[in-house]
Simulated assay, not measured.
Amino acid sequence: MELVLVADPMCSWCYGFSQELERLIQRHPSSSIQLVLGGLRAGATDVLDDAGKQFRLHHWQKVEQASGARFNRDGLLGRVGFVYDTEPVCRAVVTARILRPDFDLFKVFRAYQHAFYVEAADTTDGLALAEIGSRALSRVWDTVSADEFLRTWKLQSTIDKTAADFAIARTMGVNSFPNLFLKKSERLYGVSNGYTSVDQMEKVLSIIAA
C-alpha cells in the first residue's frame, strides 16, 4: 500500500493525525508513505502575539480532545518574538530527504512535530532544526552531522525543492492539512481530508479496494 501524505510539521491537526497514521501503518507494515510538504504558513513574517497564541491554544485543545496528543502549552505561551513561519521546518524535512533518500521520512516528520509541540523547540531556527534532523537521521552505522545537515538546509537548491513541494500540494488541490491519499495504478484516491481516525481510514481504504 503506497500512501501520499500532504502535511506540515507545524500544523496541529497534522500532529494529532500522525498518531492515527502510525496506527494505520502498524496494521499494514508493508506500507510506504510519500511526504509532500504543505507550507501551512511558509514565509510568514508576523510576530505571534497574545491573540495568536490563544487562537492556537484553542485549536490545540480541540486536537488534544480528538486525538489525545500531548501539547506543551507553556512552551507556546513563553515564546517571545516568535514568527510562526513553517517554511524552515518544511525545508528541514526536505533536507532529510536529500541527505538520506532511502530513510523513512515520516519518522523525521514526527521528530519535528515532537520537538515543536512537546519539547517547545524553535523549529524556525536552522541550528535547532539541524540538531533535531541529524539525530533523527543518524543510525549506529550511518551518522549525519548537524553541520552537514545545516549546510544542506541552507542551499538554494534545497529552498527551491521545498518550494516545489508546496507547488505540488497546490496542483493536487490541497489547501488544508492533513490530506492523505492512496496511490494505486498511478492514480491518487483520497483517504482523508483533515483529522481522521484509523478506523475511518480503514473503511475508506476498503471501499477503494472494492
Rank of each mutant, 00 (worst) to 15 (best):
F116M: 01
I132W: 03
M201Y: 09
Y15W: 15
I98Y: 06
A120F: 08
L150S: 09
I132C: 05
L5W: 01
Q54E: 15
S197G: 13
H114E: 09
T123P: 00
L35M: 14
S197M: 04
D142W: 09
S31P: 02
R100P: 05
A169E: 01
S30G: 15
V47G: 10
S18Y: 05
S134L: 11
R110G: 02
P178D: 04
A121K: 14
V6S: 02
S145L: 12
D46Q: 15
D199V: 09
V118A: 09
Y189F: 15
Q34F: 01
V83L: 09
S206M: 12
W60L: 03
S18W: 05
V108M: 05
I132T: 11
D102R: 10
S192G: 08
L188I: 06
A164E: 15
R41V: 08
L105P: 00
D102T: 11
G38I: 00
G81R: 07
L5F: 03
K203G: 06
E20L: 03
G126E: 06
R73N: 08
K154M: 11
T95A: 11
T171S: 15
E131R: 14
F106Q: 02
G52N: 03
K62Q: 14
I208D: 11
R139C: 11
Q54H: 12
R110H: 08
S12H: 05
T152F: 07
G16S: 07
D165R: 04
D102N: 10
E131W: 07
L57W: 05
D8E: 04
L182E: 04
Y195R: 08
K183G: 07
G52Y: 12
L37E: 00
C90M: 01
H28Q: 12
L37F: 01
R170F: 02
A7K: 03
E186T: 12
T123G: 06
T162F: 00
P29Q: 13
L24T: 03
S32T: 15
R79I: 07
D160N: 13
F17C: 01
F106C: 01
T95R: 04
K203M: 10
C11Q: 00
I25Q: 01
Q156H: 10
F17W: 13
P29Y: 12
F116L: 01
V6E: 01
V174A: 10
W60P: 00
A51D: 14
G190L: 13
Y195T: 04
V4K: 12
L76P: 01
L35T: 03
T123Y: 03
W141Q: 15
K184W: 06
A115R: 09
I168H: 04
G81A: 12
A209T: 13
V191F: 05
